[in-house]
Design a protein around this nucleic acid. Sequence first.
DNA 1: CGGCCACTTGAAAACCTTCAACCTATGTGG
DNA 2: CCACATAGGTTGAAGGTTTTCAAGTGGCCG
Lengths: 219, 219
Amino acid sequence: MYAVLRMPRETSSFDAGLMKNDDVDCAGCISSERCWAEKVSPAAGFLVRREHLLAPGEVLVRQHHRFEGPYVVTSGCVGVTELRIDGVERIVAFRVPGEMIGLESCHGATHRFGAAAVSSASVCRLRWSAPGIDGRSGAVLRALLAKSSRQLEFAAQPWAGLPARERVRAFIDDFRSRTDQPLPMTRAQIGSYLGLAEETVVRALRRTGRRGVPVIHGR
Amino acid sequence: MYAVLRMPRETSSFDAGLMKNDDVDCAGCISSERCWAEKVSPAAGFLVRREHLLAPGEVLVRQHHRFEGPYVVTSGCVGVTELRIDGVERIVAFRVPGEMIGLESCHGATHRFGAAAVSSASVCRLRWSAPGIDGRSGAVLRALLAKSSRQLEFAAQPWAGLPARERVRAFIDDFRSRTDQPLPMTRAQIGSYLGLAEETVVRALRRTGRRGVPVIHGR
DNA sequence: CGGCCACTTGAAAACCTTCAACCTATGTGG
DNA sequence: CCACATAGGTTGAAGGTTTTCAAGTGGCCG
């Protein structure tokens, strides 16, 4: 059995008073080009709700709960999780700024996966209306399809079947190619994602000469 | 190392004379509801090119070649493949009728993955125009996003880290939940996909009491 | 100071891969 | 029609890798 994750803490209203959740048009946001990989014109329909800052471990969406729109990660790192029938919670993906959470649930009414912050993270939630997106904007649809397309690319998990060392190495390379932030996750979380025991991740890192990979330490 | 696949045969013009490749509007096709999970109205923009019947092993798209639109599988089973830097070709997904090939390449100009028929299979290729879809139809964009969303769901690979027996079992259950056709792939292909040696797949099937899983036999 | 959490390490057991045969259907050429 | 080649499938034994279990380290925080 691979690394078992500890129970995440409950969603809190931490910080909710400091930065109010707020409805904005991405066109007026300096990060819009990183989020959408294109210039966003006002009233194109890129309307989001800025969520409060997530603390490490804080749950953003809970599996099977009502789907109210996908999120864009704007800072930090968020883990996508799946609770299996055997009760084990596994990390199925890590999302960094510019990537999305909940795209895989766009066709349904509930979240297919959960999501929890791995490091301090901020996200914006897209305004959404069931059962599809309201008719306004082909630009939004096109952007979402492009995002979804890109995420399918990452999802191939090219390290399947490789020995532990190479799997960990491939994971690190992949993560580094997507963001320049230092690795924010624990070895247990890496193990959960790669399907390896925590100890195996440790030994793989030792043998790869990647000892001292920066991770969160203490709380 | 996991199961190594034999070289696929080259794309042939097999059968090209029997069923001509043909441009059609999905609205006039009896399969349109399975393909798009919705009623398709004429001139909504669901225009495809019917491809000739693929023989088992025949290559549909080659990795890195020019992207000319995603495909919908209409019968049989198609494997999505990735050629790794170490020269090993791995199956990263199996696609059955109603599922798509090439969605992960919609944001680029070339195919991120290859694709080859696992059993006899037929596909339709969407009409496409770079760099996105021509402005006509929000209905197509919505349908594609829904498809993409659904494929992201499958991509989680919930059997990561499970022992071989359960991995194979989970794979079979997953495949059966998506189509009622008998398993069309070889044990080597299952191994390639799950990251297991062919022999391990055989032994896993024995121990699961799933001996006699129907697969292609001989040529 | 004590507890918790992330991280490490060692040793034994379990698991999987590799290698080397061998079996069995199918299609081909003689 | 039969022999043969081939591809898919199966099996056993040896060896290597990974997991498990058990223990221990060190930093941070209450």
